Computed example of a mutant assay.
Amino acid sequence: MQFDKRVWIERAKQMFAGFDRPLALTVFLLLCVGIVTLYSATLDMPGKVEDQLRNIVFTFILMWVLANVPPTTLMRFAVPLYSVGIALLIGVAVFGITKKGAKRWINVGVVIQPSELLKIATPLMLAWYYQKRETGLRWWDFLVGFAILAVPVGLIAKQPDLGTAMLVFAAGLFVIYFAGLSFKLIAPVLVAVVISVALIATFQDKICQPEVQWPLMHDYQKHRVCTLLDPTSDPLGKGFHTIQAVIAIGSGGPLGKGWLKGTQAHLEFIPEKHTDFIFAVFSEEFGLAGGVVLLVLYTLLIARGLYVAANGATLFGRLLAGSLTMAFFTYAFVNIGMVSGILPVVGVPLPFMSYGGTALTTLGVAVGLIMSVGRQKRLMKS
């Protein structure tokens, strides 16, 4: 059989037709930066880089598969995925596995964390709902949307897992907002949050006393907020993470200490240096210049995702791509904020940088779904 170069090139183009090249390139660059930083952070933890490389290969395969699935097909999975996810969360609440004081896992033959599924299933479900209601959207449809969102958020927060609950809430809220929720309704909530933060900061000496109980919050969540306001109140305990991360970031200076030369990381001062606090390792070694480059890459990722969302062929596609793109912003903002000491410490990874197969797979699925929306538009034009 004669080799025809043009035929094989055409077949290769068809295979990767679903890939949005600017989006894929940006993700690839972030993963490269992540691997370089992870190598430095895990010099004393052999095998982590190899594991992450396997995770990356799997993630790109999954991304490619989902990029080639039409959004109309994705809509069919919205209700089943959401329903299964809620059922699993209820299962966790009833007979889940408890680790380190949190009940977040369940054994269904293999041990899984259902809350990760809801990071995708919740915006998928909400986008499906508003697509169905597109021609006759009423005010009460937004109440239904919040009800759909409140169920997984409440179950996840009860585990307790405030970080994941916040991510699921943000992804769902973006769908509701993009569907037409007026900003005038959101503004009072934001004002209330700002006033609450100001009051906590003003009266922290009184309300952060051990005998004071905060409503709707666990003690460890209260401690995180109080430690954020004054890390030196517990420098060897709750404040240790924040203090050491801020020292690492500041010691990097304009250009950093150089790759593999970060003292805070290699002398074991930075906790969780390969997962939640990998930004501190990166900043110490690459400095402000490296941080600016990283922020530019995240900006490009978000800008491209929003471009795909704005040009989506259907309301479902626009809502899904828009909410998942803004979820990347939430991930990056919360992680960098907590490592920099301006937000409480929560378990939120840095997108495509932090070590971990589950988080990377979730992010890869999100990118694949955004690419699917972009591919549908391109096919309609051709």
Results as ranks from 00 to 15, higher is better:
residue 347 G to L: 05
residue 140 W to V: 06
residue 254 P to S: 12
residue 221 Q to H: 11
residue 144 V to T: 15
residue 45 M to D: 13
residue 104 R to F: 07
residue 218 H to V: 13
residue 196 S to Y: 02
residue 322 G to N: 09
residue 72 T to Q: 11
residue 319 L to D: 06
residue 136 G to D: 13
residue 248 A to C: 04
residue 312 G to R: 01
residue 71 P to Y: 15
residue 277 F to N: 07
residue 213 Q to G: 03
residue 300 L to F: 12
residue 241 H to K: 00
residue 60 F to P: 02
residue 340 S to K: 07
residue 237 G to N: 06
residue 294 L to R: 08
residue 183 F to Q: 12
residue 51 D to M: 14
residue 6 R to A: 14
residue 288 L to F: 10
residue 227 T to V: 03
residue 220 Y to F: 10
residue 222 K to N: 05
residue 352 F to P: 15
residue 382 S to H: 11
residue 14 Q to H: 12
residue 88 L to Y: 15
residue 218 H to P: 04
residue 69 V to R: 07
residue 186 I to V: 14
residue 156 I to F: 09
residue 273 K to M: 04
residue 219 D to H: 06
residue 208 C to K: 01
residue 190 L to S: 04
residue 118 L to N: 08
residue 366 A to T: 02
residue 311 N to Y: 03
residue 236 L to D: 13
residue 41 A to E: 07
residue 145 G to A: 08
residue 270 I to A: 01
residue 87 A to W: 01
residue 148 I to Q: 02
residue 164 T to W: 04
residue 173 L to S: 14
residue 273 K to E: 01
residue 295 L to Y: 14
residue 15 M to Y: 05
residue 136 G to S: 11
residue 251 S to A: 02
residue 292 V to N: 00
residue 261 K to S: 15
residue 348 V to M: 09
residue 138 R to E: 11
residue 5 K to R: 12
residue 84 V to S: 13
residue 105 W to H: 15
residue 218 H to A: 14
residue 362 T to D: 05
residue 51 D to Q: 11
residue 46 P to G: 06
residue 130 Y to W: 12
residue 180 G to A: 12
residue 246 V to A: 01
residue 267 L to C: 15
residue 70 P to M: 11
residue 198 A to V: 05
residue 186 I to Y: 13
residue 169 F to D: 01
residue 348 V to A: 07
residue 30 L to W: 11
residue 257 K to N: 12
residue 71 P to A: 09
residue 336 I to M: 14
residue 292 V to H: 03
residue 127 A to S: 12
residue 101 G to Q: 05
residue 249 I to W: 05
residue 244 Q to Y: 00
residue 28 F to A: 14
residue 175 V to N: 11
residue 54 R to F: 14
residue 323 S to T: 07
residue 246 V to N: 04
residue 89 L to Q: 09
residue 335 N to A: 08
residue 312 G to C: 00
residue 305 G to A: 02
residue 352 F to G: 07
residue 88 L to E: 09
residue 217 M to E: 03
residue 180 G to D: 11
residue 274 H to W: 03
residue 365 V to A: 13
residue 340 S to A: 11
residue 43 L to A: 06
residue 84 V to R: 15
residue 189 V to W: 14
residue 246 V to H: 02
residue 128 W to F: 09
residue 200 I to K: 00
residue 272 E to C: 02
residue 16 F to N: 02
residue 136 G to E: 09
residue 344 P to R: 04
residue 204 Q to R: 10
residue 317 G to L: 01
residue 3 F to N: 10
residue 144 V to D: 04
residue 353 M to V: 09
